[in-house]
Computed example of a mutant assay.
Amino acid sequence: MAKSRKKEEMLSLLSQIQENPTTEEAIASLRQVLNSKYSVAIARTAKIVGKFAIVELIPDLVAAFARMMVNPTVTDQGCLAKKEIAETLYRLEYSDENLFLEGIRHVQMEPIWGGKEDTAAHLRGICALGLVRMNYSDVMNELADLLADPKPEARVAATRAIAYSANPQGVPLLRLKVRIGDPAPQVLSECFTALLQLAPQQSLPLVASFLVDSEEQICELAALALGESRLDAAFDTLKNWWERTRSAELRRTGLLAIAMLRHDQALEFLISLVAEGKDLDAKDAIAALSIYREDYELWQRVYKAAEQRADISFLQAIAMQS
């Protein structure tokens, strides 16, 4: 009971000082919490330190992280404190690679009903970003290992970290990953996006190859990644694929991807479908163009195109998207 009361007292203290935590007295209280053994309170304190950039508490964060690494399933259940500490140190541009290396390699298996679960995947992802930000010399090897992590969350983080690095050395890793596949569609989606960021011209044909002879979900992910890329060359690729596709769902996705390009040519094509396309294509084009409904001038063009059809249902479709 005494331990529980002490933890509640610390949490209550944090609630009281979080609006103005930069006074000398408040910083002393935050330091006291960071030096405690209550991981929930330490996690909350780390958030406050990060939010207000209290850099004088960085050594205390580092010390707390080290303590939470000792018998971690007991001292820091759920990896709560270590995740928040790493996040804060990353945001405060902490530049000692040892902590991030320890974090990116940390696996914390905790008991759950029917077995055990690794609770450190998010920590590994944050530490990957920390190593990239500080230009750690061997970061690509660390990210390659993380890209093969058992946890999808960590693999997604590895992909984002490779994109964040803007390092062309990451391109072969991503190309290999998409070639061998991944059971988690989100990982492939992030790989598509990262490839189109790091090496747009050479990656466009690779991503486009997943528009055909792939599962429908993978086709959709490839199309949306191409749309998000805003590459000029992606328009013809998406348009030609859309014209050959028979699946109604994929055709809707294709028009959305074309809208996401945000090019004049793409917008003109969609507006022409509203005015002259088949009924279903016209309504799908209206839905795709709805991402611009806050653009009054463009939305008026869509409205005028729909008026040409002399069918009130198309004007109603526009009203529903507004």
Rank of each mutant, 00 (worst) to 15 (best):
Y38E: 15
M68G: 05
L11D: 09
S203D: 11
D311Y: 03
V156D: 00
G170S: 12
A161D: 06
A154R: 02
E97K: 07
L14C: 07
A233E: 15
L261D: 04
M320Y: 11
A184M: 04
A158P: 06
L255S: 04
Q108K: 02
V40W: 06
L206W: 03
L211A: 12
M320A: 15
S322I: 05
C127A: 10
A305P: 07
Q18M: 11
L211E: 07
V132M: 05
L315W: 12
Y164S: 03
N98L: 07
Y292T: 06
P168N: 05
M1L: 09
P152G: 08
A248F: 01
I312F: 09
L250Q: 12
L195V: 05
D118P: 01
D213P: 01
F52T: 02
I258N: 02
I162C: 11
F100C: 10
T88M: 08
L99H: 08
A275V: 04
R5E: 14
E307Y: 03
R105C: 03
D232M: 06
R175E: 15
F52Y: 15
K116P: 00
G114I: 12
S203T: 09
L129V: 00
M109L: 13
I126R: 03
L256I: 06
L123K: 14
E87K: 15
A319E: 15
A305N: 09
L92K: 05
P185V: 08
L226S: 10
K37S: 14
G277Y: 08
A266M: 10
T45N: 04
L13T: 13
L255G: 03
Y94K: 10
A163C: 08
T88Q: 03
L129A: 07
P205N: 08
T88I: 12
I162N: 05
R246D: 11
Y38M: 03
R91K: 13
Q321V: 00
E215N: 13
E153H: 04
V207F: 11
E97M: 00
M140V: 07
C191N: 04
F235G: 00
E102V: 00
A120P: 02
L196D: 02
G227A: 11
L13E: 14
Q321R: 15
A282I: 10
R31S: 12
R44H: 11
K83Y: 04
A2H: 14
S165E: 11
I291V: 15
L14Q: 06
L211K: 03
A310P: 00
E190N: 11
D281H: 14
N71T: 12
K7D: 07
A63G: 04
L255Y: 02
Q108G: 01
W242R: 08
T193P: 00
S189I: 00
A121H: 13
S313R: 14
A46W: 02
H122M: 12
L174N: 04
N20A: 13
M10I: 10
L238S: 04
Q108H: 05
L131W: 01
C79Y: 02
K116I: 09
V139R: 09
L173A: 01
K239G: 01
T45G: 05
L231T: 01
L231G: 03
A157E: 09
E216D: 14
S4F: 11
L92D: 07
T23S: 15
A158T: 06
P185Q: 08
I291C: 12
A319I: 09
V74G: 00
V171W: 07
P152H: 07
K83L: 10
M69K: 12
R155T: 09
L34E: 08
C127W: 01
D213Q: 15
N141C: 01
L188R: 02
